[in-house]
């Protein structure tokens, strides 16, 4: 396990250094996107429309934050990750088209995303579910909010973060997927547990 601290924009060369179980902290620009923002971004790409911000080399956070407005300024209150598997249907195209280097969320992602990460050079960083204050406190400022018509949780929040983490690298750019490895081990352990409890499989 190695600890890395990267600044955005992150290059493909840097991202390829990371292996599963490494820990990453990110400083720079991070953009939130949940189901609706993913869908709209891919529609824009199809229509040849530019996104409000170029995502090349940036981190995308699966998060629907609680923000409060003080005057003209947005202040993050709580900003923990949401379940990433919902974005599995979009993420391979998203990585390919926008050259995002880091996807942040909780619960892991599937084979399609893992393959896209290996092909185009991106990683999945697991942020601790529920650790909403830890996340909010690493956000230095809210640069802007795009697509606010989607609602507060689904909008695209452009955030400036400082040492945002720890992100457990759970999918690297070499085809390794820690959640899938854990699932495989759990299936093996299940037989041992059944035996211990005197159960037939």
């Amino acid at each position: 396990m190695a600890v890395y601290k990267f600044k955005t924009p992150i290059s493909e060369e840097e991202i390829r250094k990371l292996k599963v179980n490494d820990v990453l902290y990110i400083t720079g620009t991070m953009v939130t996107a949940r189901d609706q923002a993913h869908r709209r971004a891919l529609e824009h790409f199809k229509q040849g429309k530019a996104l409000p911000i170029s995502l090349e080399g940036l981190a995308v956070f699966h998060c629907g934050p609680v923000m409060k407005k003080e005057g003209e300024k947005w202040i993050p209150v709580a900003a923990g990750p949401t379940t990433s598997t919902r974005m599995d249907i979009f993420e391979d195209e998203f990585i390919k088209n926008f050259k995002v280097r880091v996807i942040i969320g909780k619960g892991g992602m599937g084979r399609r995303t893992t393959e896209a990460m290996a092909k185009y050079g991106a990683v999945y960083g697991a942020f601790t579910g529920g650790a909403a204050v830890l996340a909010a406190k690493a956000i230095r400022s809210v640069r802007t909010v795009e697509w606010f018509d989607l609602g507060m949780p689904e909008a695209m929040w452009v955030l400036e973060v400082e040492e945002f983490g720890p992100l457990a690298i759970a999918i690297d750019s070499h085809g390794n997927n820690l959640f899938m490895e854990v699932q495989k081990k759990v299936e093996e352990n299940k037989q041992r547990i059944y035996q211990k409890l005197g159960l037939s499989p």
């Binding site: 579910g129 959640f179 854990v182 041992r192 547990i193």
Partner: peptide
């Protein structure tokens, strides 16, 4: 706790 799922499912 023998399942190995672990904190946040990361083992």
């Amino acid at each position: 706790n023998m399942t190995g799922i672990g904190p946040m499912g990361l083992g």
